[in-house]
Nucleic acid binder design. Sequence first.
RNA 1: GGUCCUGUGGCCGAGUGGUUAGGCUCAGCUCUGCAAAAGCUGCUACUCCAGUUCGAACCUGGACGGGACCUCCA
Length: 487
Amino acid sequence: MQPLFLYNTLSRKKEEFKALNPPYVGMYVCGPTVYSDVHLGNCRTFISFDIIYRYLSHLGYKVRYVRNITDAGHLESDGDVGEDKISKKAKLNQLEPMEIVQTYTVDFRKVMEQFNALPPTIEPTATGHIIEQQEIAREIINKGLAYEVNGTVYFDVEKFAQSHNYTALTGRKLEELLENTRDLDGQQDKRGRLDFALWIKAKPEHLMQWSSEWGKGFPGWHIECSAMSTKYLGEQFDIHGGGMDLQATHHTNEIAQNIAYCGKQPCNYWLHTNMLTVSGQKMSKSLGNSFLPHELFSGKHPLLDKGYGPMAVRFFMMQTHYRSTLDFSNEALQASEKGFERLMESYQTLQNLTPGATSGEDIKALENKCYEAMNDDFNTPVLIAHLFDAARIINSVNDKKVSLIQADIVLLKKMYQNFLFDVMGLKVEAENTKTTEVLDKVIHLVLDLRNKAKAEKNFSLSDEIRDKLTNSGVQVKDTKEGSSWKI
RNA sequence: GGUCCUGUGGCCGAGUGGUUAGGCUCAGCUCUGCAAAAGCUGCUACUCCAGUUCGAACCUGGACGGGACCUCCA
């Protein structure tokens, strides 16, 4: 097997992947915070790691893929702020935090399923691991690298930095960080400007809080990932992933916590996915260029000309490398959608290919190129380019311009199955099969009538039928074998 | 303000010190009664300036543009 290379943020270069305990691989990816609708940028990250998960599995690794659900942190009652303060509502009228968590967790899973992303093997929640988080905070205090002030536990960054490289993941200089860190309200208790909270004292109005030896509070912003990755993957595992925006703060602090806790760097490879932009600008609510997954699917948004199916969007995302920014625009989406359809049609064509006596193309070499692309830091854009080569070959064989022996046709089918479906996780867009069956019969009836007209050289009638079908969204293709159609 | 990333043809996007990325669009051809689909062909790009080199879009320096992070964030 060819070696797999992946880009490690920690070393800033591509490294050969070597599992700690082959064939097992431990992978942790920072999951979503389920306090609002899942952001499309989140989807991109999780789809990228879905492909990494799928490819590692395809290579034969037994992957334990842990992706957390952040359902705890600093949830405060919204109604307590502002003029319209209605504090005495019936309890049932207000949403329980766990109701919000439930709503958006369900929504998140639904969206990921629409994108055909495989569920992680473990999907732990922060609220389910309060005790483990407290244990880590306690142990870091015992090691002298954290301290408690007035019910809040802080990590002592400068003390940690005396014996460890705190900024290993970003390569920044600690002095520069110290100079540039801004003062934040309500954190006067911190000893150092870079110190961050492991456990935070809860104000009475906090809806989610737990008892601890430091009083009532809730876990800090980074500790849940340390707790859950350690619990399910051990003190050291293979791959840790997340969005690039997590690199500087969240992951830097996570590493510090793990090292302080057990003396070990948590994982060998840090992978980061790049951000998503819309027409060149970062997707954000304040810029008004943000849309939700279901708006993208339905096209019901001012910025969208039409809807795009989840598979077309997934394919679109894969035409950009995961470490490059991905720019959404109608033009780009439409281009991808067409290309995706062409690829999927070539798969249909492949099923009915007639083998020849010789092969005019080297399919085995093409398959190797596909592996080379994926082994080069999961380069899906290049993989797709090779699959388009395969599509061209298939169409040429179908047009009797090139010949392939049976074994090569089988190999092509294997390639499509492996790369298009198993690794990239694409599939035929779901349609209502029953409706489709009936529709197929009806349209063939119309096409038969049209062919009768054609046989009688009544072209004005046959063209009228075709034009009206086209207007109804049915595209007619005439071949020597007869007429076919597609939507 | 600081740190880092980035700038590729009409559009989207890979990649490499000297050799076709690929997709979409557009034009021509083949096929077709005409189309559509498909195939073939063409459109040959790399922000600017300077340097290193036999040779740079790819390395170095600078300028300009874009972005991310520094604050919860994928």
